[in-house]
Design a protein around this nucleic acid. Structure first.
Length: 362
DNA sequence: AAAACGGGGTG
DNA sequence: CACCCAGTTTT
């Protein structure tokens, strides 16, 4: 694979850095970045927008000022602070990585790419971000923004997400990243993608490198990058039982791996009402009146959830695949992890209690 | 190499 | 509604 050389790396870095110095957004993790802050922000920013991350980042930093403080916190509390951010495995990895930094690196982050890469939740992108931004190492990185910018600049036509595309993008990024200010350069590339070289309406008139952008010169900026093929989301029908007892709400904890791993929710089972009734009965929960229904949409899944009230008959028994069932007095207090989906199910039954006609929200 | 993994903003 | 976001991990 021949590296494109129609764009001189030095000129490119100079133009991009000058633009970045004039147009960079003021974000809470910028300024004088330490490895802990960079790492925390980068984990949160994985597949998550800047505006969404900012309040979580500030809250985390206040609650866990150091990596040691985070390492000592209970996992359930960290999941509680993460609730609503999504991709909950990140929170579990965050906690495990904090403990690894304390146990294996004496409480300070390593600066070698391989050591960073070995931390849970840290892949090629995040390792490159920490190494370049926090430690000034000449390390490339490729995220969604960089992929789009480079695809257009060099007219890279491989569909995103393929190994061919990955190879070309990382090789290109590696060639461009300068010895001086590699962290600023990487952030500038991402900033350009986020604010100028946007997916739908690129503002080429504001782009500092438009004069040497191949896609622009060929009038193909809207055709690149070629998106990866998308699979239709699978549909899932679920029945949820909202059980209120004297000690609070009956919640179930999901298994650590997989969807909503480690989070709590009202017990729910897959399938139709008849099937759900039988399964829940085995766990000692009997289903009452229907309270409403919601549809919760994920990237690759559509959950149709019918919400019933429920009652415990005698003793509660295990309910697969949940790890544990327990009555919780203050589910949204932050002591445990609760997904937005679970909160919606709970709000349905709460709203329903005072206003019987309330159906689907949003 | 492909699929799983959340949630929300945007046009 | 479709797309996509400062990706990583597992299969």
């Amino acid at each position: 694979m021949k590296a494109p050389d129609d764009l001189a790396p030095r000129w490119f870095a100079q133009a991009l850095l000058a633009w970045f110095d004039a147009h960079r957004r003021a974000l809470p993790w910028r300024g004088s970045p330490d490895a802990y802050g960079v790492w925390l922000s980068e984990i949160m920013l994985q597949q998550t927008r800047v505006d969404t991350v900012v309040p979580y980042y500030l809250r985390f930093l206040e609650r866990y000022p150091t990596v040691a403080a985070l390492a000592e916190a209970p996992l359930d509390e960290v999941l509680g602070a993460w609730s609503g951010l999504g991709y909950y495995r990140r929170a579990r990895s965050l906690h495990a990585a904090a403990q690894a930094v304390v146990d294996r690196h004496g409480g300070s982050f390593p600066r070698e790419l391989s050591a960073l890469r070995a931390l849970p939740g840290v892949g090629a992108y995040t390792a490159g971000a920490i190494a370049s931004i926090a430690f000034g190492e000449r390390t490339p990185l490729v995220d969604g923004n960089v992929a789009r910018v480079l695809s257009r600049l060099f007219a890279l036509g491989d569909p995103l997400g393929t190994s061919a595309s990955d190879r070309a993008l990382w090789a290109t990024a590696e060639r461009l990243v300068p010895d001086e200010r590699p962290g600023d350069f990487n952030q500038a590339l991402m900033e350009l993608g986020a604010t100028v070289c946007t997916p739908d309406r690129p503002r080429c008139e504001r782009c500092p490198v438009a004069e040497r952008c191949r896609a622009r010169l060929e009038g193909r900026e809207l055709e690149l990058p070629v998106p990866r093929a998308r699979k239709a989301p699978t549909r899932l029908r679920l029945v949820a039982a909202v059980v209120r007892g004297p000690d609070g709400l009956l919640l179930a904890r999901r298994p650590a791996g997989g969807l909503y791993g480690g989070l709590w929710e009202p017990p729910m089972v897959e399938g139709g009402l008849r099937e759900a009734k039988a399964t829940l009965a085995e766990a000692g929960v009997s289903l009452g009146a229907k309270r409403g229904a919601i549809e919760h949409v994920l990237t690759h899944r559509r959950l149709a959830i019918v919400v019933h009230s429920g009652r415990v008959d005698g003793t509660i028994r295990a309910l697969a695949p949940y790890e544990e069932l327990a009555f919780v007095s203050d589910p949204e207090g932050g002591a445990i992890g609760l997904s937005t989906m679970a909160k919606r199910v709970l709000s349905i039954s709460t709203v329903e209690a005072t206003s019987p006609r309330a159906g689907r929200r949003r």
